[in-house]
């Protein structure tokens, strides 16, 4: 008998998928508090890593993945996460992912359906993502807009004058554009996907989080959910970051948790910047009920 099963005996993975800065980390903090009866240390989240983790990949393949090309890594990703579920006794794995739901060179989705239970897709008004993303990258608003509008936008890609290094602890993540990302995760999916609007997570909190908890098949009372929400409230996350730092923060950025609000774009973006976002993402914005600003009004 083999000591480790190679086939998937159970669908276990719940993908926490999003474009960056759309509530993913907040939700993981909430889950940590929910599953840990209120305990939350932002540097010890109880979720199960990120899809793009080099450590998870190297451990599953016994490869030194710095020798692999990114296209080779993406060929193996479905097998890696199918293998990962066989390594755990617990029946749910929460895996964060910023990659778009795309195909690898073999024409197979990089995210395997076989071990997948379901996915939550977090979406946030792109006009608010811009400023938060710029803060995250310690870059400018215009840099963020450019990346969000780029059809093949990529996160954590290492550019050097000659070729690319390949030593980050995360692989490059192809995100497509902001709209492309959202559409990739919500069109013709082979597993159930629930879309959560960041704005609903803020303003219709208990209802929105309760729906997500039920969707994942986790049995918790409204009181337990409320307690977890209280323990993972934005002010507390920000306070913990201030006190102890946050290891998921980009090194050059000042803080990971910035304002956590919605609608801040009104004071952050110029009419030209707003137009660049709206022109590129109007269809998906309308689909998820984000009001299209009347550019004639704002000066």
């Amino acid at each position: 008998m083999d000591s480790i099963a190679t086939t998937v005996d159970q669908k276990k993975i719940i993908w926490l998928a999003s474009y960056p800065k759309s509530g993913n980390t907040w939700f993981r903090a909430f889950l940590t508090a929910l599953l840990g009866n209120g305990d939350l240390n932002i540097n010890q989240m109880k979720t199960d890593g990120i899809f793009s983790s080099r450590g998870i990949f190297d451990d599953a393949t016994d490869m030194d993945s710095t020798y692999l090309l990114d296209s080779e890594v993406k060929l193996l990703m479905p097998e890696v996460f199918t293998h990962v579920v066989s390594q755990y006794e617990k029946d749910r794995l929460f895996v964060k992912i910023h990659d778009a739901y795309i195909l690898n060179e073999a024409g197979i989705p990089i995210v395997p359906a076989e071990p997948t239970l379901c996915a939550l897709y977090f979406i946030r008004n792109p006009l608010d993502v811009v400023g938060s993303f710029a803060n995250h990258n310690a870059g400018t608003i215009d840099d963020s807009i450019q990346l969000m509008n780029k059809p093949k936008g990529t996160l954590a890609k290492q550019k050097r004058p000659i070729g690319e290094l390949n030593v980050n602890n995360q692989f490059a993540q192809i995100m497509l554009s902001w709209s492309g990302h959202a559409e990739s995760w919500t069109t013709d999916m082979p597993f159930p996907v629930m879309v959560l609007r960041y704005e609903d997570m803020l303003h219709d909190q208990l209802n929105t989080f309760s729906k997500a908890v039920a969707f994942m098949g986790i049995d918790k009372t409204p009181e337990e959910i409320e307690k977890a929400l209280f323990e993972s409230r934005f002010e507390k996350l920000k306070e913990q970051e201030k006190e102890k730092g946050f290891m998921e923060k980009n090194r050059s950025s000042e803080s990971f948790f910035r304002s956590g609000k919605s609608g801040g774009w009104v004071n952050e973006l110029t009419p030209e910047q707003i137009k660049l976002i709206v022109d590129n993402h109007k269809t998906v914005m309308e689909k998820y009920n984000y009001p299209i600003p009347d550019l004639a009004v704002k000066q």
Partner: peptide
Amino acid sequence: DDTIHKVR
């Protein structure tokens, strides 16, 4: 029995 199978 003592073989560990991982990805490839």
